[in-house]
């Protein structure tokens, strides 16, 4: 085992070198920028060192809190809808009494929106949801479901819901597949024993399926949180790229992008990156703790 360790260095060298240069160094560089008023133009040499004043601004920045809340709201709504559909489908398809057919076809069809470029989806819904001339309103009007067009992308509630639901539409297939795989992995014996004990469907769901599924649910939760906190493409391209209507689609990463690359506040953009990082760490820590507690039991 301990042999050949010089080769080991050689084998991990590409990883370590690239990791240091393209991962670690940019992170430190970003941290350094967060202590300056660098505009991103004319080289860092022209920037002033401003100490922690960017961080002072961060903790008092209402737009940052707003962006945080927007992100959480959109993610939360998206996650609930996505999981309800995915879990419902997974339960249906794994039910031993129903024995539904066509699993692989449905899995494929439901998964399909996942592989499509989010930027394309955002652009598509940007024109589908247009107030006066969007296909959705046109269709609802001609079906008589509404009397007047709804200005979807002008109302913060509708716009946030739209992002959440588009996200749910894109990603429920992925969760469904993962949950279905998880449920299929639960031993049949449990259910048969429960059946003999006369347990009803709900009892076996709460007493067997859910506890057995917990690790998978947590996995889905963690990946969803980390992805959700980085929400960017969809809110950016769905409206005016600045988070309209009324800043309701201004997510944390979109705010970071606009500060750094639209308004040329590299220094503050870098600070926002660290704000995002801290929030991600807090959320991940909470989830990891929950996971750890489960293992102790």
């Amino acid at each position: 085992m301990a042999k050949n360790n010089r080769r080991a260095y050689l084998f991990i060298a590409p990883f370590v070198i690239v990791f240091l240069i393209f991962n670690i160094y940019p992170i430190f560089l970003t941290f350094y920028y967060s202590l300056t008023n660098y505009s991103g133009m004319g080289g860092i040499a022209n920037a002033e060192f401003v100490g922690i004043s960017n961080y002072v601004r961060l903790v008092t920045d209402t737009y940052f809190y707003e962006a945080f809340l927007n992100t959480i709201q959109i993610w939360g709504f998206n996650f609930v809808v996505q999981m309800l559909i995915a879990l419902g489908l997974a339960l249906l398809f794994s039910d031993i009494r129903l024995k539904l057919r066509g699993v692989s076809i449905f899995r494929a069809l439901f998964y399909l929106p996942n592989i499509i470029t989010i930027a394309s989806v955002a652009l598509l819904f940007n024109i589908l949801l247009d107030w006066n001339h969007g296909a959705l309103n046109q269709m609802l009007l001609s079906l008589g479901l509404i009397d007047s067009p709804i200005n979807w992308l002008n109302s913060p509630a509708y716009a946030q819901s739209a992002v959440a639901l588009i996200g749910a539409w894109m990603w429920f297939g992925n969760s469904f597949i993962i949950l279905l795989a998880g449920i299929s992995g639960i031993s049949r014996d449990y259910y048969e024993a429960a059946l003999i004990d006369g347990a009803n469907w709900w009892k076996s769901f709460t007493n067997i399926t859910l506890p057995q599924l917990k690790p998978i649910l947590l996995y889905v939760l963690i990946t969803s949180i980390i992805g959700g906190l980085q929400l960017f493409d969809l809110p950016m391209l769905l409206t005016d790229t600045r988070g309209a209507p009324q800043g309701s689609l201004n997510t944390m990463v979109l705010y970071l992008y606009n500060q750094a690359f639209r308004y040329n506040n590299f220094g503050y953009g870098a600070t926002l990156a660290y704000g995002l990082f801290i929030i991600t760490v807090i959320f991940s820590a909470i989830t990891f703790r929950t996971m750890y507690r489960r293992e102790v039991r």
């Binding site: 247009d130 107030w131 006066n132 001339h133 009007l141 009397d147 007047s148 067009p149």
Partner: peptide, 24 residues
């Protein structure tokens, strides 16, 4: 005519009638 500048409807409004449905 509720056709925001630079939108497809805006361009279309220079050519002929455009749809206009405001409900309220």
């Amino acid at each position: 005519a509720l056709a925001p500048a630079w939108s497809p409807a805006w361009y279309e409004s220079f050519v002929g009638p455009i749809s206009y449905n405001v409900g309220w």
